[in-house]
């Protein structure tokens, strides 16, 4: 899990162009949206693409998005459960 979270940190920084953010700045348990990284709705769409492209994982029910993208940890758990 730790390895996957570290990989996700790098992928998110690159994919979302978080120029001023270092991997160690991202707390795996902290909310991804609303505070901290300052992600927006386009970033959410980009995260959906990232899951499909890099992990072959699709979100079947859009309503689950809020729960899946709550934090890096919840993202990693979703990937592990669905790969």
């Amino acid at each position: 899990m730790e390895e996957l979270i570290d990989k996700l940190k790098l992928q998110i920084i690159e994919q979302l162009n978080l120029e001023d953010i270092e991997p160690e700045d991202i707390d795996a348990d902290e909310p991804l949206f609303g505070t901290g990284l300052g992600l927006d709705s386009i970033d959410a769409l980009e995260l959906i693409v990232l899951l499909e492209k890099e992990y072959g994982v699709k979100i079947q029910n859009p309503k689950d998005g809020q729960k899946i993208f709550y934090s890096l940890k919840t993202m990693a758990e979703f990937i592990q459960e669905n790969q």
Binding site: L16, N17, I42, D43, L45, E46, V49, E52, K53
Partner: peptide
Amino acid sequence: FFPSPSIFV
């Protein structure tokens, strides 16, 4: 085929 939302906008 992975259209990028952040590029599209």
